[in-house]
Each structure stands twice: as C-alpha cells, then as structure tokens.
Design a protein around this nucleic acid. Sequence first.
DNA 1: TTACATTTGCATCGTTGTTGCAATTAAAAT
DNA 2: ATTTTAATTGCAACAACGATGCAAATGTAA
Lengths: 135, 135
Amino acid sequence: MKAVEVLNRHKLKRTSCREGIIDVVMASNQALSENEIRERLAGNYDRTTFYRSFKTLEEHHIIHKIVINNQLVKYAIDNTITHKDEHAHFYCNECHTVKCMENIPIQKYQLPEGYSDTETEVLIKGKCANCVNQE
Amino acid sequence: MKAVEVLNRHKLKRTSCREGIIDVVMASNQALSENEIRERLAGNYDRTTFYRSFKTLEEHHIIHKIVINNQLVKYAIDNTITHKDEHAHFYCNECHTVKCMENIPIQKYQLPEGYSDTETEVLIKGKCANCVNQE
DNA sequence: TTACATTTGCATCGTTGTTGCAATTAAAAT
DNA sequence: ATTTTAATTGCAACAACGATGCAAATGTAA
C-alpha cells in the first residue's frame, strides 16, 4: 500500500512530511522514534510540524505510539492499516528496539464486577533474539 | 508496617519527605500522582527533593511507578513490600484513577524463539465500577 | 557533642510537547 | 490554467517534567 492511498482514504491532505512518515514507518520492521524517523526522511521539517503530523496520523489510526518507561517514544504502523489484531509490544533492554509482536495476541483479562474495559496495553521487556545471541 | 521500618530495612535515612511519601502511598488504595501525594503530605518540599525521593524509593523497590499515555505518572506501593505478585494495572478513562489489580496476575506471554523476558507490564483501560454505576 | 555522609533547596539547564499567528501550500472551484 | 479556500507549515514563545551542581542543613553514628 502506498502512503498517498492511505492519506486519500482518510481524506488527509497529501503533504511530504506525512507521506514521508508513513513510508518510513511502513517500511520498518520495528517501531521508530522521532529521531529515527527524521534520519530516514528526505526533507527537513520543523519539530512542531513533526509532532502535529504524528498526532494527526495517530488520530486517524494510521500509526500508533508506544511509550517505554515514560521516556522512549516510538511509532509503528497501526493495526487498521495492517488488518491485524491488538498485539503485545516487546522492548529489548539491551538494544532498546521496540517491536510489535503481531503473533502475540492480548489475553482478555478478567476484571472485577462492574468494571468494563476498552483497551489493554501489554509491554514485554527483555532481550531480543539478536542480543541473546551476542552473549 | 510503619514507614520507618521500611526505611530502616533498606538502610535509608529517615527523612520526613520519604517517610511521608511512604505513609501516603501505603494508606491509599489507588495509585497517586505527584500532586495527589503532595496534597496529602504535611510538609512542603521542593520539587527536586520530591523527585529524588521518588527515585530513591523506586530504586529500593519500595514504591513503583505507573505511567499512562506518557502523561499521567502515578505511584503505588511496591510488591516487595506487600508480598504480592506482579499484577495488572487498571486505568479509568473517566475519573482517571489508577488501581493495582492485585488479583489479576499477569499471563506469561509466549515469545518467539531466542527471546527472553524479564518483566511484563499490563495496563487495562476502561471504566471503573464507580463510573459505570454513575451512568 | 562532635564528625561525617547524606539529603535538601535553590538556581539552572535540557528535553518534550503545545499554542498562537502569519505565511505558505494543497486541493477544490471557476 | 487561475483563482479561491481551507488546511498546513514554520517560527517564537511557553509550560511541564525531570536532571545536575553546589552550598547549607540534617540524620546518624562515633
């Protein structure tokens, strides 16, 4: 799927910043930080524009945000685009990469009487296969 | 358990700020934000002292931090003190309270070949019993 | 009571993210 | 192709959170 199609489908204006972000995020097999995305981007954009683009794309469920330790913010392509289910995220304590674990569906947790839930976030922290191998 | 005992056991100096934070957090049945803790505290402390106290208490596993949407930071007493297992957290989208769901143990997620895990965070978002009732 | 190490408060700084506003740009209408 | 309109951009300024260096104050052990 092309970035332009995605923007059209959501009736969003086609700007190079948005287009670039979508392309970069779609092409990556792991979640990327603001800076990682900026590095891979052709143009040079103001920080404000960047944030506003992320916000817009998030609101339209084109990308989603993953936050680790209230510090590291990463973005990945959203389920709505990939047609996959809610999934767990994995954070590697060594190389600090974040991956969407598409194959790890999120269990339905049983809440106490009277509670209702809308969304569940699961973040598994540990060592990724790469880092385990390098020991 | 008294706050002083906790501090002694961890060989931490007994300062009114630390003591106060532990008391407040232990007395609450839900996780509290920096401001909520400050309001319940007798003394008036500098912001830096506050942060440093949280940091120290966290490092010694006396309290633990829960972060919601990369925005709301709340603290609760740690498992090491209560002798309970790793548990899920619940965030109410309406009243913005955070509770430790002591009775909701965290499922062991099956990671791909080669991965190892050390910790899993589960945050369930929804409506708490209180807010559901008030509809 | 003294001595020592730790902790506190203050000033300052960095990062992240937001807002208002004028200038620019994309897309729709002519 | 040109004009029009509404959305988006870049800039400046700001707010919140958290960290650090340092002198003064405090807790604890001698």
